[in-house]
Amino acid sequence: MSSTHHVTTESKPVRLLLIAVAAFILSLFLLLPLIAVFAEALRRGWELFLASLKEEEAWSAVKLTLMAAGLSVPLNTLFGLSAAWLVTKFRFRGRAFLLSLIDLPFAVSPVIAGMVWVLLFGAHGWFGPWLAEHDIRIIFALPGIVIATVFVTFPFVARELIPLMESQGADQEEAAVTLGAGGWRIFRSVTLPSIKWGLMYGVLLCNARAMGEFGAVSVVSGHIRGETNTLPLHIEVLYNEYQFSAAFACATILALLALVTLGIKSLVEHLSGHTSNSRH
């Protein structure tokens, strides 16, 4: 502790000023909007607040949002794990290309991320006629919403794991091989324990984005009330209908879901900090 004390050479007033500026910016840009959401939601009293949360359409939006996140997060966890395993433990041609491909969803605008699925699966899209023939609905239905969410949240788990696994190298796995362990055994007893906190962190980030995604989902949703409106879309609908209190009441649900995710995230960080400290 005493050694870190001398690392900063700035004088006390400078440090205080920097802290004050940081605190001001944080409260202006992060805390104030959060307070505004709750204040606006409760502006017309608790009764209206609770009544708007009881609305059937609000609940169907919550359910749809949880379903979309519940389907896309496991899929992306599986994908992220295998992709990270592949690019860090093996060297092969096209590896760099694969790495940049993983980042693609971060690079394109969510509107495009939605529109490509309309191009592929829309009634006049590449696979549209075939889908119509087999009576399968993707766009403007749950599958489309899940696909768009999966696409947008694709990189979170992989991006969290790749640097971590890169720094760990393949030495331990190679040692395990020489001791005669099989692939699944190596993964379970060697790789997974050393990446579990990074993995959890990636899953939580992925979940936060999956629940909050607006742009891409908006394009493929069709905005059918009580059916294909996710929570963020439902909030926009309410706002456009002058139901400001109800809109912000739903926004508080979303904010609470985000806060819970953030809470778990800090807990994970706290715990992982402990274990890595005790190990070193």
């Binding site: 309309v118 829309g122 006049h124 766009i139 403007f140 069709g222």
Partner: peptide, 8 residues
């Protein structure tokens, strides 16, 4: 546009 694209 959405109906043309397949909104049922």
């Amino acid at each position: 546009r959405s109906v043309i694209d397949g909104l049922a």
